[in-house]
Design a protein around this nucleic acid. Structure first.
Lengths: 202, 202
DNA sequence: GCATTATTTTAATCCAGATTAAAATAATTG
DNA sequence: CAATTATTTTAATCTGGATTAAAATAATGC
């Protein structure tokens, strides 16, 4: 039997399955992708997937757990590496996007949380809420330390996360585009956190 | 029989159906919403929907046509009212968001284009492409007239459209939130179009 | 190479939800 | 009000894709 250190064949294949599923779900939508679609990406039969997962719902759930994990990892790394709020934000955006377009991607868009079983749904919503909270804390820290212009944190967080979450809708693996994405996207989003207020207060 | 000027009962009910469907699809996802769900919002039976629409695919298709129409309308109105690129952009964002949160909403997220029949898919993709092109033209105009800072137009367009498209994922009809959205969101997005470059060129 | 375990396939079921047809009810018109 | 048309329901089917069980194949350990 393999040791704990090295990944077993099972874990490897399961990981591949989750990537294949994320790719299919992002491109064809949840209802539009059958288990047969996912299996065929792996050169398998639909029934083979049941060796790795109880059912389709669990497949989606695991994709979302993975998405949440990678997002958290990117944010934690950014916090470890960055020195002020804006710097952490920029790094987070870069790290997260690098994951999406690199070989750890694709990352599933969480479009179908409502279709999950209630325990799974609650768990994913909790992960999601925590991530938003941590993200907003970075914004707040940046405002406090002066690196980010004062703004409505909730709204700004939603705006940025929306941009990020939508990426898989239009990015489908073109490497050139991927490099541009990593370079340009953080810049674009961050610029909005820095400038003067443009509009009069309501 | 009713004249052309006033909407027939049929058209009214069909319009209500499209709104109900958009609401369900946005909240529960496409696969998560059955025709029964949509019908029950209207106080009807699932079978009744077939009086208005050939099948579920057509229901989705019509939701997307409506979404595309409203987006186009918002942009056209902004172009009619605005005086420079940035002004048109701000107005477009405001008008579009007002539609989403007002009584013409909700607007369906186009998450399931790949599930459409090929003719419908092609038509929606075409509408979608045209809208993106028009949107990018506004960015370009703003850069040319000096109201918008130079940027990667394709990428910036994707970033902004992503923010907008994601709104229905977290906005579910709270009127307070709706007002804030209309006021704050264009500001946040527009600020990113105005500031100095923050990062060194690659 | 034999025995055991791991992985995949083949070949059925199963089922939620879409779809349809016929009947019932509501609205409208003359 | 009778006749006609418009809308909705009831009660079946129909179906694609999920799921399962048993059999087949591949990998591994001795």
């Amino acid at each position: 039997m393999a040791t704990d250190a090295e990944e077993t064949r099972f874990q490897l294949q399961k990981g591949r399955m989750l990537k294949a599923a994320a790719q299919c779900f992002n491109q064809k939508g949840f209802s539009g992708t059958s288990l047969r679609d996912v299996a065929s990406v792996l050169g398998l039969t639909d029934a083979a997937l049941y060796y790795y997962v109880r059912n389709k719902e669990e497949l989606v759930y695991l994709c979302y757990v993975r998405a949440a994990d990678l997002g958290r990892e990117a944010l934690e790394q950014a916090q470890a590496d960055g020195n002020n709020g804006m710097d952490v934000m920029l790094r987070y955006l870069r790290y997260h996007i690098e994951m999406m377009v690199g070989d750890r991607g694709p990352i599933a868009i969480m479009s179908e949380i409502p279709s999950l079983d209630s325990e799974h749904r609650d768990e994913i919503l909790e992960l999601s809420r925590t991530h938003s909270k941590n993200f907003e804390a970075v914004l707040q820290a940046g405002i406090t330390d002066g690196s980010i212009t004062s703004c409505n944190i909730r709204m700004t967080g939603n705006a940025i996360m929306g941009s990020i979450n939508w990426i898989p809708k239009w990015y489908h693996g073109d490497p050139d585009m991927g490099m541009k994405l990593v370079d340009e996207f953080p810049e674009i989003l961050a610029r909005g956190l820095h400038g003067e207020r443009l509009l009069a207060e309501a």
